[in-house]
Amino acid sequence: MAVTQAQLKRSGVDHSTAEPLLIARNISKAFGHVQALSDAYIDVYAGEIVALVGDNGAGKSTLIKVLSGAHRQDAGEIVIRGQSATINNPNDSFDLGIATVYQDLALLPSRDVVANLFVGRELTNRGILDRRKMTEEANRVVRQLRTNLPSVRTPVRFLSGGQRQAVAIARVVRFGAEILLLDEPTAALGVKESHEMLTLIENLKERNKGIIVVSHNLAHVFRICDRITVLRHGETVGTLVKEETDSTEVVRLITGADLL
């Protein structure tokens, strides 16, 4: 289900010589009797946003988690920058330059923003935590995102849904990863915050990141993405270039209704 070069041209990204940052093909994953993924495919190039859409339970989060190392696929291949990759755990995924914002954010409520930004990737100086440097860098990232937290020492428990989402995104930005996986980044947000989040994601695209965004909101999808990959019952049924399609067609692919 790869895209043709002609389609890519029209998506506004010149990939004629480039190879995808990430390809996941023939991915399958079962949880007991539930076949969450059976034949999933997705790819993403640098400097583009691919939307991953599908009904509830279609397997979107599972595919994201396979790529982030939270789950190990039963079968299928992951290729990162042209090289076959094995992702057994979250650290493997980080090391390949993949950073993930999960649907439930995976934040630490009792810990402050600094600790949340650096969890699993703390900075040390001769074995001792470099708390000053982490605080400075946290402030820098928060500023860079044109954000305005009262203090990076505030426990995440006290933040609003939107602020938490921003912390989760800030973490990903800080990693400097090239491949970003965002699972429903606007789901918990109001109209204004959603708008700001989408702008932020577009900014990240400008920085030449390859971004996969899961979303149920087709208006958001059509606003920011270049291509749309549709997952149904764990199977990729197709990838559409935004300029060549509209939401009716996407909905039909999602639900499996006749495409006449």
């Binding site: 979250p90 980080f94 995976a106 934040l107 630490l108 409520p109 009792s110 600790a115 969890v119 699993g120």
Partner: peptide
């Protein structure tokens, strides 16, 4: 910090490589 992270949200900490 990993002790705090684990107690704060075990799954979240694990997803972040703790």
């Amino acid at each position: 910090w990993h002790i705090f992270a684990t107690g704060s949200d075990r799954l979240g900490a694990a997803l972040n490589g703790v």
